[in-house]
Amino acid sequence: MDAITGAWDWLGSAANWAGENGVWHRLGQHVQLSVVCLIISCLLALPVALYLGHIGKGGALAVNLANVGRAVPTFAVLVLLTLSPLGRAGDWPTIVALVLFAVPPLLTNAYVGMREADRDVVEAARGMGMSGPQLLLRVELPLAYPLIMTGLRSASVQVVATVTLAALAGGGGLGRIITAGFGNYDTPQVVAGAVLVAGLALLVEAVLVAVERLCDPMRGKRPARTVRRGIRAARKDAAAV
């Protein structure tokens, strides 16, 4: 209980929000790094995934990439990059690590989404004389949209978590509040930092869910999505592994 009231007090003190080590500065760093890396990752992963999904090749690559991404510890990659020559280049170790870990979920989900697009519909569209690009943009992409967005959401959650970890390797972001708290045995600060990080991650997730609903190219025309979505995802896991 002490920790909760302590954390509350910590968050309530204006001094903790201002300055170089303050919450606002750290939050700014966190969001900026996350957004930049997400954009880079999307630019790298989505065109490749959409193209591979469209021509129906490279399935093994897409699935294995996700499995490898899971097995490699983020912390290890961050530290390895920090100790490499890249480590002297400011934020670059963090950016590279972030992109490395954001690409697999984006690529795999977009690829699977493209491949899972109802074959009958795709064949029908081809029969109607649609060209390759038309097929990709007007049939496969709208059908793959939910999974592409799932990939974007898991990539974002991954990125927010990885930026937090970057603090362990000397990077900026909200994780610094937690690591500084651990360094000073300041439990209230540790908890306050953790609350901020968790809040940011949940907020990002919620915003992306809302964006997904609002931007759906087939809004209202898709069969009802309920809890079953999670189950479908699990089934996909089972099929993918």
Partner: peptide
């Protein structure tokens, strides 16, 4: 399913930090 997904969203460093007290 919702609760476990929320737990999954919390970054690991924050999770460990929250459990420390």
């Amino acid at each position: 399913l919702g609760l476990t997904t929320i737990l999954y969203t919390v970054p690991s460093l924050a999770m460990f930090a929250l459990l420390t007290p």
